[in-house]
């Protein structure tokens, strides 16, 4: 049951690409917020979340992601998602997350657009 969640960041130009690994629940959401806050403090405004290594999410984790998207909008930035599994894409759609943020198949597509 030790599903240890990890989030790592790589900078590419003005974009911060956050790579998640593991189940996105409330604790994972808090880790993403922590990482995001550190990047905002460095004046980063544009974000891509690559969820290739995330297979499961829950509604509390997604609610936290929606709060992150709202903060990005407040600072005049952008946030996109890429590499969603079909179930995560469907979950995001049901929860209305795709109204606030764009979803791309690949990281390359997200950076291009």
């Amino acid at each position: 049951m030790a599903d240890v969640f990890k989030v790592t960041t790589r900078m590419e130009g003005k974009y911060a690409i956050l790579y998640t690994e593991g189940y996105i629940n409330n604790l994972a959401g808090d880790k993403i917020v922590e990482e995001f806050n550190q990047l905002v403090a460095k004046d980063v405004k544009h974000y891509v979340l690559n969820l290739q290594k995330t297979q499961l999410v829950n509604s509390i984790g997604i609610s936290i992601l929606i709060e992150v998207i709202e903060k990005v909008q407040e600072i005049g930035g952008t946030l996109a998602f890429c590499h969603l599994t079909p179930i995560i894409a469907k979950t995001f759609k049901i929860m209305g997350l795709t109204q606030y943020s764009k979803v791309y198949d690949t990281e390359e597509d997200a950076l291009k657009n």
Partner: peptide, 29 residues
């Protein structure tokens, strides 16, 4: 994270019933 223990059981049961992988993921979430 004990909910993940239940999703593992759900996976095995649904697999035994020959659900397709997308539907198994839907049950788990």
């Amino acid at each position: 994270n004990m909910e993940l223990a239940a999703t593992e059981t759900a996976h095995r049961v649904a697999e035994f019933m020959q659900f397709d992988p997308d539907k198994i993921d839907e049950i788990k979430i």
